[in-house]
């Protein structure tokens, strides 16, 4: 299987902040609809695609939303004030380009701030290059949401771009949908909404599906950069199988099945003990009577910045693990 750069580039360049996932949802739908048996979009905007099989009912969750900025106020001179959707750092955002759903461009700037470490989003604004409020209001409304302007770069080994969190998970799920021809398990691929604001889409879609098992695919951090906090996950060292984060302790049986599948298929893997953060499996495993859940993580540097970074090998190994796992007769 080749690394599909075109697909990933289109994924990260398609607009879809939390609560405004329509465009990204439609894009993914277009990619997968010929490969699945059923497809629906629920009231929170989750895209749920089923590939029928007779074995275990498995939910595969990759979130399609991304962090963004919501306009809350437009001043007399046409400057936009905003609030964050998901984890947005003021320092990372400063002087970045942003783009709205309708294509309006802007940059993020700040009021004069003496101590830059005290920079807050409330002291920052978006400049869309207009002369006054009226002109601004003809382009942007209060409540509209923008995202960092995506800029996709890659070399042989590495991809550099915003929104890898979690379009890389969507990429892996899409490629798995295309690759799996005769599923033995009953597969529900869910491209979830609103993960970045609290795994909200995963919660409601899991309730609807009521799966036997869930696997989420999401980015994790890395501990291999200068003076990074101890974290035994690095780029280029394989896919990561989650042991824990703040939202979940992976079911030990499921974790061992994942490790076994990786070993049997010579897929390099790392074990991930993450001290912060959470992902869709956190919400899914507490649904109804409980759903044993695991996570395939893609080691990622600089998460939630404008230039997140992953290794293509890790991505391909994560994809391979997902496919092999889904094709595995899981005894639980």
């Amino acid at each position: 299987m080749e690394f599909n750069s075109k697909l990933l580039e289109e994924l990260v360049k398609t607009y879809g902040p939390s609560g405004n996932e329509t465009r990204i949802c439609n894009y993914i739908k277009g990619q997968i609809e010929n490969y699945v048996d059923e497809i629906i979009i629920d009231s929170l905007g989750n895209l749920i695609a089923r590939k029928k099989g007779n074995g275990k009912k498995i939910m595969i969750a990759a979130h399609m939303d991304q962090i963004g900025l919501m306009v809350t106020d437009i001043d007399d001179n046409g400057f936009l004030r905003f609030t964050n959707i998901g984890g947005v750092s003021p320092l990372v955002s400063l002087h970045q380009h942003v783009i709205f759903e309708n294509g309006v461009l802007g940059i993020i700037a700040k009021e004069p701030v003496e101590d830059i470490s005290k920079l807050r989003l409330s002291n920052m604004y978006i400049d869309i290059g207009v002369k006054d409020k009226k002109e601004a209001e003809s382009l942007v409304n209060i409540g509209d949401v923008c995202v960092y302007l995506p800029h996709y770069c890659e070399n042989e080994n590495t991809v550099f771009t915003s929104a890898l969190d979690d379009r890389i998970g969507c990429y892996i799920a899409i490629e798995a949908i295309k690759a799996i021809e005769n599923p033995i398990n009953d597969l529900y691929f869910v491209f979830t909404a609103q993960e970045e604001v609290g795994t909200r889409g995963a919660k409601t879609s899991a309730y609807r599906i009521d799966p036997d098992i869930c696997i989420s695919i999401d980015v994790t951090g890395s501990g291999d950069t200068p003076k990074a906090k101890t974290f035994a996950v690095g780029l280029g060292k394989g896919t990561a199988i989650k042991v824990k984060d703040q939202s979940i302790l992976t079911h030990p049986k499921l974790r061992n099945i994942m490790i076994e599948v990786a070993k049997n298929n010579n897929i390099p893997y790392q074990l991930e003990v993450l001290e912060y953060g959470g992902t869709d499996s956190g919400a899914v495993h507490l649904t109804k009577e409980g759903v044993p859940s695991g996570v395939i993580s893609i080691p990622t540097r600089y998460v939630h910045s404008t230039t997140e970074m992953v290794s293509k090998n890790d991505v391909m190994n994560s994809l391979k693990l997902l496919i092999k796992l889904l094709e595995h007769n899981i005894e639980f």
């Binding site: 629920d42 009231s43 929170l44 989750n46 919501m70 809350t72 106020d73 609030t83 964050n84 209060i142 409540g143 909200r200 889409g201 919660k203 409601t204 879609s205 309730y207 609807r208």
Partner: peptide
């Protein structure tokens, strides 16, 4: 008017994520 603050929360948080979700 719009409520401009994104601070605070209310019952909607629970309502819209109950069961299969709602608007």
């Amino acid at each position: 008017q719009y409520r401009k603050s994104s601070m605070g929360g209310n019952d909607s948080g629970r309502i819209h994520t109950t069961k299969e979700g709602s608007v």
